[in-house]
Computed example of a mutant assay.
Amino acid sequence: MARELEFIKGVDKLHAFYTEHVRMLAHAYDLSDEDAARVLDRFDFKNVARSILREPRVDLFQAPPEL
């Protein structure tokens, strides 16, 4: 069970970093988080659409922890 829990923690960290990169990409295209979420939802990226509307869970200026 410990391996599985560590795996889930790693996936959670990866998802948080991915979400922040999507948010930065949206801002690079001058899209607000809300506009980007609507576009993502329209193209069936529902998990990401919801995630970018939440508070960031990672600091992109800090090195990611070792997995």
Results as ranks from 00 to 15, higher is better:
residue 22 V to C: 10
residue 53 L to F: 00
residue 53 L to C: 09
residue 7 F to W: 14
residue 8 I to M: 15
residue 54 R to M: 10
residue 10 G to S: 12
residue 49 A to I: 01
residue 24 M to T: 10
residue 7 F to N: 13
residue 11 V to D: 06
residue 51 S to G: 05
residue 16 A to P: 07
residue 28 A to V: 02
residue 12 D to E: 14
residue 7 F to C: 04
residue 43 F to A: 05
residue 60 L to E: 07
residue 5 L to V: 12
residue 14 L to C: 13
residue 13 K to I: 10
residue 28 A to T: 14
residue 66 E to N: 11
residue 61 F to Y: 12
residue 22 V to Y: 10
residue 9 K to W: 04
residue 51 S to Q: 09
residue 53 L to W: 00
residue 31 L to C: 05
residue 50 R to Y: 06
residue 57 R to F: 03
residue 58 V to Q: 05
residue 29 Y to T: 04
residue 60 L to P: 12
residue 8 I to C: 09
residue 8 I to Q: 13
residue 2 A to I: 15
residue 17 F to W: 15
residue 20 E to C: 03
residue 62 Q to T: 11
residue 14 L to T: 08
residue 10 G to I: 01
residue 15 H to S: 13
residue 43 F to Q: 13
residue 65 P to N: 02
residue 53 L to E: 05
residue 2 A to E: 09
residue 53 L to M: 07
residue 42 R to S: 08
residue 26 A to F: 04
residue 12 D to Q: 14
residue 9 K to G: 11
residue 3 R to Y: 06
residue 26 A to D: 04
residue 50 R to P: 00
residue 5 L to W: 06
residue 51 S to E: 06
residue 10 G to F: 03
residue 6 E to D: 12
residue 47 N to H: 02
residue 33 D to W: 01
residue 49 A to E: 01
residue 54 R to F: 07
residue 65 P to W: 00
residue 47 N to V: 00
residue 57 R to A: 12
residue 9 K to E: 14
residue 23 R to C: 07
residue 22 V to A: 08
residue 37 A to G: 04
residue 24 M to K: 15
residue 15 H to T: 14
residue 3 R to W: 13
residue 65 P to S: 08
residue 61 F to S: 09
residue 54 R to S: 10
residue 21 H to V: 03
